[in-house]
């Protein structure tokens, strides 16, 4: 037996059963292939959606609308029928899926619904200028299905559809100069708030990371596109948001969000500084890059004790 495993076992830190399993994994007497199976299934579902989308687009004339709608709609229905027939009952906590393929079949069904509605609208323009209602409807549908069947992949797709709908819808009101940006920033902040609420709540607490990741990146990225000058409000909102996210990440030891906060703040500051000097002075640009990188580096190294426990 491996020396370290034996030491853990002799001190009672590993149960004999667990020690045997660890030893089997270390000596490759046991090689679980669950990740490989999931990778096959995810890649398979993504490729099917890509292929169906391409076939619908390129072979529209040859296949005919009835065939397309029947095949795409029928397959999507079959996916949902499978999900409702075999899916376990709703529970507020994490639910183990009935089969390895379950998550991906549901994801495939949702993707096919997207293709179905896209084709329907393109062909007959049923909703006309309000076609983005499809995005809203499918976003809500996917979010509901995600909760019903405990599927974070479908939740991510639903949240992205809602972001798309919100961006397009806000652009029509033209209240602000670029009205979709404030809407998306607010949406990102709402997702982050939802992440905290989910973490503290009782329903699907493991969805919190999906909300947080999507919300933080969506909000910060939208702010970054407008933060091109030190005098712009977007820059200072971005700085405040990055500072808040960074402080929370340090406290919660969430190093992925900490890295995102530092990254967005740095890129934005660099863009504004280069904008201030006019982008043309190559030497000054290099000095700004050098000094700013060195400063951030020094701060991160100085704070390394804080990250010491962050073993990857």
């Amino acid at each position: 037996m491996d020396e370290f495993v034996a030491a853990l076992r002799s001190r009672g830190l590993l149960e004999p059963g667990a020690a045997k399993r660890v030893e089997d994994l270390e000596t490759r007497a046991h090689l679980p292939l669950a990740r490989e199976i999931h990778a096959f299934l995810y890649l398979g579902a993504a490729l099917i959606l890509a292929g169906v989308g391409a076939a619908v687009k390129d072979r529209l004339d040859a296949l005919g609308p009835a065939v397309i709608l029947a095949v795409v709609g029928g397959t999507a229905s079959a996916c949902f029928a499978y999900a409702f027939r075999t899916g376990r009952a709703f529970a507020p906590e994490r639910v183990e899926q009935p089969s390895a393929a379950f998550d991906y079949v549901l994801y495939l069904g949702c993707g096919l619904v997207g293709i179905f509605f896209s084709f329907l609208e393109w062909k007959w323009k049923l909703l006309g200028p309000s076609w983005d209602t499809y995005l809203f409807g499918s976003g809500l549908l996917f979010a509901a299905l995600a909760y019903r069947f405990d599927n974070r992949l479908v939740l991510g797709a639903g949240l992205l559809n809602l972001a798309g709908w919100l961006g397009l819808r806000a652009a029509r009101f033209e209240v602000f100069h670029a009205p979709s940006k404030p809407a998306l920033v607010v949406y990102g902040a709402a997702l982050v708030a939802l992440a905290f609420a989910t973490r503290r709540g009782e329903i699907k607490r493991h969805f919190a990371d999906t909300y947080l990741t999507l919300g933080a990146h969506l909000g910060l990225m939208t702010l970054l596109t407008g933060a091109t000058d030190f005098i712009r409000l977007e820059f200072w909102i971005l700085m405040a948001a990055c500072a808040a996210l960074g402080a929370w990440s340090m406290a919660a030891r969430r190093f992925d969000t900490f890295a995102a906060a530092v990254g967005y703040a740095y890129v934005s500051t660099l863009i504004c500084a280069l904008h201030a000097i006019g982008w043309r002075d190559f030497d000054a640009t290099l000095w700004i890059v050098l000094l700013s990188s060195a400063a951030v580096l020094a701060v991160l190294l100085w704070a390394r004790a804080r990250f010491r426990e962050a073993v990857s």
């Binding site: 989308g53 994801y107 293709i115 509605f117 896209s118 609208e121 393109w122 797709a157 639903g158 559809n161």
Partner: peptide, 18 residues
Amino acid sequence: APKGGGGSFGGGGASGGF
């Protein structure tokens, strides 16, 4: 004519045009 993202509908997003 339909254009754009053929073969890349993966996110499950409905859209008004291809």
